[in-house]
Design a protein around this nucleic acid. Structure first.
Length: 479
RNA sequence: UCCUCAAUAGCUCAGUUGGUUAGAGCAUCUGACUGUUAAUCAGAGGGUCACUGGUUCAAGUCCAGUUUGAGGAGCCA
């Protein structure tokens, strides 16, 4: 007989039907006559209650049923006599697929701290919280591809190993097959990378943008969704050394089209989560409410689902960097000296306290900031006619800050070339990037969305290390 | 990388001005109980007090360094 998923059994409620279910024991209890097992197979947050008549089974077999063990159960679906669930399965055959020594198994049927679960990252999928996050993560991946597919975008696999060390987005991890104990050197004392696997120095990518722009110059609407790597020594709850990024690129589009796409995209994903991950979101919301009970009332935030609906219901506030500086300059905390960094005028780099003030206090909704000073932004961004600013846009979200960073790209060959020289970007190495402006250049724009940042917002989790299965960060590459 | 705080049983935590044999709840084990819901009740076992060094008659407690974790900042997505 084929296995039926627990989710299906709970949905259909076919009383009297004969089924085979397989899964892991979350908890069990009982007495001398009857045993109740809460079984979970990952298909749903809900467990299925298995009822075992103790007299019908071998005592040695039943002893092997412990928290964490895996079972195959054949039985009939019945209306539950108990209060906690509407249906249950009365077992006619019980097979223990794998035991789990109760003395050693670290997951108990009780609340564990997220820090502890992170230490047992290989087992934390078996917790309710991480199960919910895992299901939501999958739904979001699916929704991202669906969104772009429905709008005529093509998915481009940009390289993970890159030959350029100047993608302009941070410190890179080196990739080499050279024997680190016997490095080959050139005559002038440098490491001889011509002996390396690729015959040159290579790194893990920090962004697929430059390559996806090349595809954009033929396919018009493209996106890449892949792993990116930053060797920055960032120890925060919002950064990972290995994370997944979504980078769409659209030809014949300007910065306003880019903002429209970003807002539509984020709202689509949040709306998708609300309709397709209801049960898991409700669970995470309840978890957060329990956690917040210990906090004073003013510090408590909106319940998770309400917060997601709120973002859907309101237009993102769009304003320029210059306007933001004016608002911040005139703000109470700035005048009273409550900001750690005072806002003085144009050119001030916005700190997270300033972004938070704009999003959480002043506008109380997501904000899209545009027109940043060119000095604080990347070389490829389109220079505005004012000579001071570039057509960049950052989407700022409550609690997480910058969730999206994007721009209209500089399409003019001379302007791009000169800016690269100004910023010491090696033009020979990036000849291929310049070629896109030399042959049939068109206006185009795109952005990058950190997938785990989106996950933080949708799940309401506080630490980015808890929304990716196996987080990589400084001093940590376990599992 | 910087600032602040923390590390005691498998987990979550108490541990007084430095002073006898380091405590609780949960988990585990044993037993009781005819339908449980994080079951309940009774009993038992379980500790290199993160690590290294120092002060002291005496250190879980004080000091220094190291490691790890949390919160915040920077870098960014």
């Amino acid at each position: 007989m084929r296995r039926t998923e627990i989710k299906t059994i709970l949905q259909k409620e076919e009383i009297g039907a004969e089924v085979v279910v397989k899964g892991w024991v979350r908890n069990y209890r009982g007495n001398n006559f009857v045993m109740f097992v809460a079984l979970n197979d990952g298909s749903s947050l809900q467990n299925l209650q298995i009822v075992i008549d103790i007299e019908k089974f071998d005592a040695q077999l039943l002893k092997k049923i412990t928290v964490g063990s895996s079972l195959s159960i054949q039985g009939t679906i019945a209306k539950s006599e108990g209060k906690g669930q509407s249906i249950e399965v009365l077992a006619s055959s019980v097979e223990v697929l794998g035991t789990a020594n109760a003395d050693e198994y670290p997951l108990q049927p009780k609340k564990h701290s997220l820090e502890f679960l992170r230490e047992i990252g290989h087992l934390r999928f078996r917790s309710n919280t991480f199960g919910a996050i895992t299901r939501i993560r999958h739904q979001m991946i699916y929704a991202i591809h669906t969104f772009f597919h429905e709008r005529g975008f093509y998915n481009i696999h940009t390289p993970i190993i890159t030959g350029s060390d100047c993608e302009g987005a941070g410190e890179m991890f080196q990739v080499t097959t050279l024997d680190l104990k016997k490095l080959p050197f050139t005559k002038d004392g440098n490491i001889d990378f011509s002996e390396d696997f690729f015959g040159k120095q290579t790194n893990l990518t920090v962004s697929g943008q430059l390559e996806v722009e090349m595809a954009c110059m033929a396919m018009s609407k493209v996106y890449t969704f892949g792993p990116t790597f930053r060797a920055e020594n960032s120890n925060t709850s919002r950064h990972l050394a290995e994370f997944w990024m979504i980078e769409p690129e659209v030809a014949f589009a300007d910065i306003y089209d880019d903002m429209d796409l970003a807002e539509e995209f984020l709202k689509y994903l949040i709306s998708y989560a609300l309709t397709n991950c209801k049960e898991d979101l409700e669970f995470l919301q309840e978890r957060l409410l329990q956690e917040e009970k210990s906090k004073p009332e003013q510090e408590r935030s909106m319940p998770l689902i309400e917060k997601l609906q709120f973002v859907l219901a309101n237009d993102f506030q769009r304003l320029t960097y210059t306007e933001a500086i004016e608002i911040l300059k005139e703000s109470k905390p700035n005048k009273k000296g409550q900001f750690k960094y005072e806002v003085k005028g144009f050119g001030t780099d916005l700190q997270s306290e300033h972004e938070r003030y704009l999003v959480e206090k002043h506008f109380k909704k997501p904000v899209i900031l545009t027109g940043y000073p060119k000095e604080i932004k990347a070389f490829y961004m389109k220079q505005n006619p004012d000579g001071k600013t570039v057509a960049a846009m950052d989407v700022l979200f409550p609690q997480i800050g910058e969730i999206i960073g994007g721009s209209e790209r500089e399409a003019d060959y001379d302007k791009l070339y000169n800016r690269m020289v100004e910023m010491n970007i090696p033009t020979e190495e990036l000849y291929w990037y310049l070629d896109s402006r030399r042959y049939g250049t068109v206006p185009h724009a795109g952005f990058g969305l950190g997938f785990e940042r989106l996950m933080l917002f949708v799940t309401g989790m506080g630490n980015i290390r808890d929304v990716i299965p196996f987080p990589r960060y400084p001093k940590s590459a376990d599992f």
